[in-house]
Structure formats: structure tokens, C-alpha cells
Design a protein around this nucleic acid. Sequence first.
DNA 1: GCAGCAATTCTGCAATCGTATAATTGGAGC
DNA 2: GCTCCAATTATACGATTGCAGAATTGCTGC
Lengths: 219, 219
Amino acid sequence: MDTARRAYRRESEETRRADLVAATQGLVAEGGAEAATVRAIAARAGVTAGLIRHYFQTKDELIRAAYRSLMDDMTAKASAALAGAGALPEERLAAFVAASLRPPVLDIGAVVLWAGYMHKVRSDADLLAVHEAAYLSYRDVLQGLIATLPRTADAAQLRSEAIACNAVIDGLWLEGSILSHSFDKGEIVTIGLRSVGAILGVNLLAHCSMLLDTGKTTA
Amino acid sequence: MDTARRAYRRESEETRRADLVAATQGLVAEGGAEAATVRAIAARAGVTAGLIRHYFQTKDELIRAAYRSLMDDMTAKASAALAGAGALPEERLAAFVAASLRPPVLDIGAVVLWAGYMHKVRSDADLLAVHEAAYLSYRDVLQGLIATLPRTADAAQLRSEAIACNAVIDGLWLEGSILSHSFDKGEIVTIGLRSVGAILGVNLLAHCSMLLDTGKTTA
DNA sequence: GCAGCAATTCTGCAATCGTATAATTGGAGC
DNA sequence: GCTCCAATTATACGATTGCAGAATTGCTGC
């Protein structure tokens, strides 16, 4: 037998798509978008390149699916922190902010993965829509938490505040992930809570000292 | 004459390098990193592809030069706004923040170029150093402006505040660039000034209404 | 266990990539 | 205006890319 074909198992469409998406994300996270070639993706997913076209009409379609998956997962992970939080509005907001600024959301791999898609987001209208939807989805959760605070605020003010809080979280997420070595443990979370609190005029740190993990008990 | 060679002019090394860097940035800004092929870069710079290797040993070296140039330019453009500002600390800080949140600093091309190199920043120690230096350089300018405000603040507080203000500017810069269509004109600048003011406990909007350009006179 | 279908592999192709190097030519110095 | 060197063009090469279609094979229903 000179021609020994590679043995394989049939998998459900759902499984295969998930595998291919995961492989794509792993490659982009490690080596940027240029590392995610169809052959590399297939190899990491344990299949051959031709199969990709069986599940995705084009490579761009796979990339889009992978990006959508990443964005959804990040919002989901931050939102999951709400389940363990109490009923107090300040406490819930603080839990959400803190969860967004620590692993697994705060992660250089996630940043690189996210950044690796940026150039596609620019040129691909569909991807831009995915990005916008994910951004607004996260911001809506944030705005919902802000709205429950014991204050009076009209719609326009709520929108402004949500944009601002989202921005400070984004910025801290970025630099905290990239330059993690130059920040003390818990510093990013503390600054995030203090900044969001300052923007909204509430004290998040007071209600939520249990969310901090400074690693050292500085005076 | 069957072989008509293309006519050309000799230029200084300085000019050619600048042209190639500018061509690279333009292409990445328009079409993402994948659009910046050596042939496309050369064509835009008005030369042939071979010349690139005459000035840069490898394409990566050119891209790195373009990245370094981008980072330096962004800080420089924001800092340039200080020259036209008055002597009042609030006014100067506001001018700096506002300049960081509007074109040419607020630019999707800059975001894409910046993002396109995240994965290299992760693995390449030199590039990480470039990023960190640029980040700290910008933050230092910001912290210097914050320190001149008429308040009392110790070193640790100044550091925290600079990180927070930098983060909110970063986040607004990102989303404002990517989703520029979903924000009103001047909205990003206004939110930036209000947020930075809230974090620092000063009113930047009061002193600096001339920095805003809302495009419409809403009541 | 046998048929048949679809999941998967395999092979190939045209295009494009970055790089290397030989062939030219513009322009400065004399 | 001639010389000569470096700036620039031109050409070529091997590798890789996304994509397509034919060939195979694992699995499901009987």
C-alpha cells in the first residue's frame, strides 16, 4: 500500500466549526493575523486544509466567526461576575468592572487576538458590524448597571457616562495586559474602580474592598 | 529601442526612507497590514520594489520604522497643541486631552497600524521597549500637566491619576477612531474632558469651551 | 454486512509574497 | 564631457497563499 490515506473521524458540524474557530484564535493570539493561514489552522484543528472550505465558504468567513466568538466570550466572562455579586448596585457595578480588569479577561493573548483582527474590521463591513454590536452590547450592560445607582441622571448623561466608563476600562485593559509587568498586582483593578467611581460620583472602593487583591498590605 | 527603462531621479537617503515609511503607513491605514506589500509600498512611493531592500534590510525593518514613526508622531501631535495653549494649567491639560481625541491623532489608520503590531510587541523585546517608551513618554507629559493643577497630590496619587487619565484617553481614542460614525462630532472630546476632569476633581470644560466643536448648537 | 451519502483527504493550480542579484543609469567630481 | 560609483530598475526564484475539484472513506440506515 503505497497510498496510505490519513485516518480520520467524522465529527458533528458544531464540533468542527468550534475546533476551527478555536484553532484560528490560538494562532492569531500567538502570531498575529498573518500566522492564521488555512493550512496552519487546519493543522492545529487536526484536519486538512480542504475541510475548512467545507464548513466556511471562504477564509474570511472563518475569521469573522472567530472574531465574533472572541468578543462574545469576553462580554460573557465579565457578565458572569454579576452572578456572584450581591444586590447592591454599587457592588454589582464594581464586580463587573473588576472582572473586566483581571484575568481571564485581562490577558495579553486576548489583546493580541483582538488587535490581530483590527485591520480586517476596518476593511470588512461585516466585521465592523460585529465589532460594533459587541461593543454596544458590553456598553449596554455597563449602562444598565450605572442606571441602577442611587442617583438621578437623564438618558443623555447615562450615555455619556457609559461611554466614558467603557473607555477607561478599555484603556486599562489594554495597557494592563500589554505592560502587566509594570503595574502592581491589583493596581489596575483599584484604578479602574476609583476612576469609574469618580466619573459617576459614587465610591465603588468603599463597598467593594473584597474585590481587591493587592498582594501586599501597604499602609 | 525595445528596452525602455523607467526614468528616475536620485534622492537623498533621508527623503527616500521618509517616503517609504509614509507609503507604508498610508497603505496600512487604508487596507490593513496585508495591503502593505513591498510592491504596493514601492508603487506608492514612486519607486520599484527592489529599492526597499536598498534602504531596509528586510520588510520587517521598514514596518518597524513605520511603527516607531507613528508612535512618535502621535505624542508629538498631541504635545504640539500645548504650544498654542495659554498658561492656565486647566487650559493646557484640556488642550492636550482634546488634541489627543481628534484628528489627526484620532484616526482609524493609526489604530490599525498600532494594532497590527501588537503580536510582534508581545514576542519582540525591542518592539515592546518601543511601545513602553512611547506609552510612558505620553503618560509623563500627561502627569506633568496634572501636577501643575492647583491641587495637592502626592506622587502615588499622581501616578494613579495619570494612568487613569491615560486609560480613558486610550479607550476613547480607540472606539472613537473605529466607530467614528456612531459618535456625534465633538462628543468624544467632550466626554474625554469631562471624564479626565472628574477623575482629577477639576472642571476642564469650564475653562475650555473654545476647544469644543460640536458641529451643532444643541440647547 | 451492504449500499450510499456526505465528511474528509488529497492533489493541483494560479497568484502573490519577500528576497536576491544582475543590469542599468543618474549625477557628482574633475 | 568623461569617469565612476552608488542609487535605482529589472528580472528571476522559491516559498507560501487561498481556493477548487476529484478521490477516498467513515459512518448511518437498513
